[in-house]
């Protein structure tokens, strides 16, 4: 199942903040695309505002954010709040180097799942499909 209604699952992937390490998110992008999803990657150093605008414009079902710079507690809530304020009901997933102790707070804010280093990319594909099918 790669479709929501009659169309492909659309995923926006983004690096928020200043960190430029994009190997992980590009790997995820490839796996999602190979699984038949429509993937939009906004590149490195996107601001929360740019991501929210892109999510609206591209009418996505999923927003995935990658953090390796330690700024997730500041920037993830900003993106999530922005999406909510624009009335977007999207699945939000996070990944990267994120300490275990920060995960509950991030989930509280609205992240559906936080994927840590070493996660097999296929597990992310399955999670996204599974979550969207439930809705």
């Amino acid at each position: 199942m790669n479709d929501v209604g009659n169309r492909k699952i659309r995923v926006l992937l983004a690096k928020v903040g200043l960190d430029g390490h994009d190997r992980g998110i590009k790997t995820v992008a490839r796996y999602l695309a190979d699984a038949g999803m429509e993937v939009i990657f906004t590149g490195i150093r996107s601001t929360p505002e740019q991501i929210v605008d892109a999510a609206v414009e591209e009418d996505v079902d999923v927003v995935g954010l990658s953090f390796l710079g330690g700024d997730h507690m500041t920037l993830a809530p900003r993106v999530i709040d922005g999406l909510r304020r624009r009335g977007l009901q999207v699945l939000i997933v996070l990944g990267g180097i994120i300490p275990q102790r920060d995960i509950p707070a991030l989930e509280q804010t609205g992240a559906a799942r936080v994927f840590l280093p070493g996660t097999p990319p296929d597990r992310i594909v399955q999670f996204i499909r599974g979550s969207l099918e439930q809705n």
Binding site: L18, D19, T47, G69, G70, D71, M73, T74, L75
Partner: peptide, 19 residues
């Protein structure tokens, strides 16, 4: 510092002294 932003630049928020 690597990107030429001062610590009080809005874009630096959350990144000061992190990595």
């Amino acid at each position: 510092t690597q990107l030429g932003l001062d610590s009080d630049d809005p874009l630096a928020e959350g990144s000061v002294g992190r990595v």
